[in-house]
Nucleic acid binder design. Structure first.
Lengths: 358, 358
DNA sequence: TTGTAAGCGTTATCAA
DNA sequence: TTGATAACGCTTACAA
C-alpha cells in the first residue's frame, strides 16, 4: 500500500501546481480559486479567502499564462520586431521598452530580422500566433504588407524611428529635422562651409529621408545669410570604402579653402568615416569637421573627441512601450506622433583649429 | 435573409481560423486535421489529405502555439536571461542564439535583469510560466537558488560565460585561461614587465575569477624565465575613476623604468582605462601598454589602436542555443563544457615605442 | 457567496 | 483510416 488513501495525495509531486490542485487543497472549487485570483477584493468570504491564500502559498501556485491566454484571448505579451539586434540603437530601444514592459507586467517577445526586411511579415505572423497583444516595430518599414498584417490582426502597433508607409499607428522618434539643424548649425557657426551629409542608402527608409530632406532645406535656408555655404549628400554602403574615400577627397577639393565637414547619419556611418580618416591620414577638426548622429560611449575618445547628436534612445523605447500599453488599456485616440529632441554634444571634431593632440 | 444557409458560413470573418474552422471547411473532423498537421506522411487518404490541405490554405490557417503548448506541455519557446541587454557581449550572444533558434523553429523570450541579479529567480519563474522549454542563462550566477529553480522545473539549462555554482548544466564560454595567457604573453614579449590586471569587482563571478586566477598563475609561471616580471590585480567600479587613476599612477611608479601595462577584463573596463588615460594625459603603448578583452568595432580607432582579445561572441550564442536544442531533442549526456578560443588582435596599444601619431 | 459546467484551440485515446 | 470525445489549465455564465 504505497500511500494511505485518507489524505487524497495533495498534488502530483514535481509538476507545476494547477488551479485544480489549489482547489482541492483548500477544499473549494476551481471557480473560487479563480475568483480569488482575479477579483480578490469582491465577493469573497474572509474565511474562504484565507484558505485559498494558504493553499496557494503552500503549493507555490501561480497561474499558467498559457492557459489564461487561451481562455482570455490575450497574453500579457508584447511583440518587438527589430531590423537587427546588432544595431545599438535597436538595443537601446529594446532596453527601454523592456523596462517599461516589466513595470507594467508585460513580457517582451523578441524577433530580430537580421537585417532581412523580407522577414518582417514572418515575424509578425509568428508573434501574432503567440497572441501578443501588440507590436513595437523598429524595422525599415519597406514591407508594407507586413505592418498592415499587424493592424489586420486588430492589434495596436507602435512604430519606432521609422515610419511605415501610410500606416495608422503611433509613432515615436527623434525629431530628425530639429536634430539635423542642430548639427548643421553647429558646424556652420564653427566656420565650416562645405558640408556633406553621409547616410546609409536612403532607399525608402523614412528616418533617412527625413534627415536628408532636413539637411537640404537647412542648406537652402542658411545659404542666404551664410556666404559660401554649400551642401551635398552621399550614400555610403558597408563594402564601398573606396567610394567613401573618394567622396571625402572630392569634398575637400570642392571646399577650395573653405572648411569641409561631414554630418554622419548614425554610429555605423560615423565609424566608416573614422576608418576613412585613418586611411587618408586626415585629422578631425582641422582637416575635416564632423558631427555624427548617436552619441556612443566611445565618441569622446576617438581622435579629439567626436561631436555628436545624442538621441534619447532608451526613452524612445520606454515611450514606445508606454504608448502601446496605454492602447492596450483601452485608450482610443487617433494615431499620435511623439518626437523627442536630440542633444548636441560638442567635442573636438567640430573645432577647426584643433590644438595639437596632447 | 442575410446568408442562405446552404453553405454553412465558412468561418467567423476576421478572427484567426481555428482547427474547427478548417475541419468544417474540409468536411472532416478536427482530429483528421490535427493528424494531417502532425503525422502528415502516415495514415491519410490522399483524397482527404488534399481536402484538408486546400481548406488550410483557403483559411490561411496556422495552429495556435498557445493551445499546442497547453496540450503538449511545451511551447517551442526558449527563455534567455541576460544580466543586462546593455552589455555588448550579451547582445552578441543574444544575436547568435536568436539565429540558431530561428533556424530550429524556436522563438526566444527575453528577460533582462537590468543588472539586478536579485531578479534572476523572478525571471526564471516568469519564463517557466510561459512553458519555455529551456533556459539560456547569461547572468552573474550569484543567485544560486534561481538557477536551481530552473533545473527543478526539469528544463535543460545552458550557461553562457558565467558558471553557476555547482550547477549541473551545459556551459559555453571563452577559454578564459587561454585568452589571458594570450594577452599576457603578448605583453611580456613586447617587453612590458609590470602588469596590472583590471577587472570589474570579482565577487563570485566565475569568469572574472577564472581570468584573475589565470593571470596570477601566468605571472608565477613566467616569472621564472622573465627577469623583472611582476603582476597585480585591481578591481574597478563605475564611479571610482579616482581610484583607477591612482592605481595607474602607482603602477607606473612601481614599474621603475620597467614598462607598465594593463590587461582589462572587458570592454567596459577598457573604456574606463581609456578615459583615465585621457585624464592623465598618457599615451597608449609608450606610457602604458594595453590589451583588452573584447574586440569592439571602435577598438582600432582609439589612440594608436587598442590591442584586444576577440571573443567569438556570436558563435557562443549560437552554440548555447544549439546545445539547448540538442537536449530538447532528447540528447542525454552528462553536462558538457564547450570552450572557445579567443583571438589576439595586435594593435598599437601594445607597442612600447609608439611612433608619433600621424 | 459559492459551485457546476462549458468552452478557449489543440492533441491523444479510443472505437468504429 | 477516420471520428467522437476527453483532456490540458484556466475563466465565466448561470445556478444554487
Amino acid at each position: 500500500m504505497p500511500t494511505p488513501k485518507t489524505k487524497p495525495s495533495p498534488a502530483p509531486s514535481h509538476a507545476r501546481a494547477t488551479i485544480a490542485d489549489v482547489a482541492r487543497e483548500a477544499g473549494v472549487s476551481k471557480a473560487t480559486v479563480s475568483r480569488f485570483l482575479n477579483h480578490r477584493e469582491t465577493l469573497l468570504t474572509p474565511d474562504i479567502a484565507t484558505r485559498v491564500e494558504v493553499a496557494i502559498a503552500a503549493l507555490a501556485y501561480s497561474p499558467s499564462p498559457m492557459a489564461q491566454a487561451l481562455k482570455r484571448g490575450h497574453s500579457r505579451l508584447i511583440g518587438l520586431v527589430v531590423a537587427d539586434v546588432g544595431n545599438p540603437f535597436s538595443v537601446a530601444v529594446l532596453r527601454g521598452a523592456e523596462k517599461a514592459c516589466q513595470e507594467a507586467g508585460y513580457l517582451l517577445m523578441l524577433f530580430s530580422l537580421g537585417n532581412d526586411s523580407q522577414r518582417e511579415g514572418e515575424a509578425i505572423q509568428a508573434l501574432a500566433a503567440y497572441q501578443v497583444e501588440g507590436f513595437i516595430l523598429n524595422t525599415l518599414g519597406r514591407d508594407d504588407g507586413a505592418a498592415a498584417d499587424a493592424a489586420r490582426h486588430g492589434k495596436p502597433v507602435v512604430l519606432v524611428d521609422r515610419r511605415h508607409h501610410d500606416m495608422q499607428a503611433d509613432f515615436v522618434s527623434l525629431d530628425n529635422a530639429g536634430a539635423v539643424r542642430l548639427g548643421a548649425r553647429h558646424l556652420t557657426q564653427a566656420g565650416y562651409r562645405e558640408l556633406l551629409f553621409i547616410s546609409e542608402p536612403i532607399k525608402n527608409v523614412s528616418s533617412r529621408m527625413e534627415r536628408d530632406a532636413a539637411f537640404r532645406s537647412f542648406i537652402n535656408d542658411a545659404a542666404a545669410d551664410t556666404a559660401g555655404l554649400h551642401g551635398s549628400t552621399f550614400e555610403s554602403t558597408q563594402d564601398d570604402s573606396e567610394g567613401l574615400d573618394q567622396a571625402l577627397r572630392s569634398l575637400r577639393q570642392r571646399a577650395q579653402g573653405r572648411l569641409p565637414a561631414v554630418i554622419s547619419s548614425n554610429a555605423v556611418v560615423t565609424l566608416r568615416v573614422v576608418a576613412a580618416m585613418a586611411r587618408l591620414g586626415w585629422r578631425f577638426g582641422s582637416d575635416l569637421g564632423l558631427v555624427g548622429f548617436d552619441d556612443t560611449e566611445w565618441s569622446p575618445y576617438i581622435g579629439p573627441g567626436l561631436t555628436s547628436i545624442a538621441q534619447p534612445t532608451e526613452e524612445l523605447g520606454r515611450l514606445a512601450a508606454g504608448c502601446l500599453i496605454e492602447r492596450l488599456k483601452g485608450l482610443n485616440l487617433p494615431p499620435r506622433q511623439i518626437l523627442l529632441s536630440g542633444r548636441l554634444m560638442p567635442r573636438g571634431s567640430s573645432i577647426p583649429a584643433a590644438p595639437p593632440q596632447a
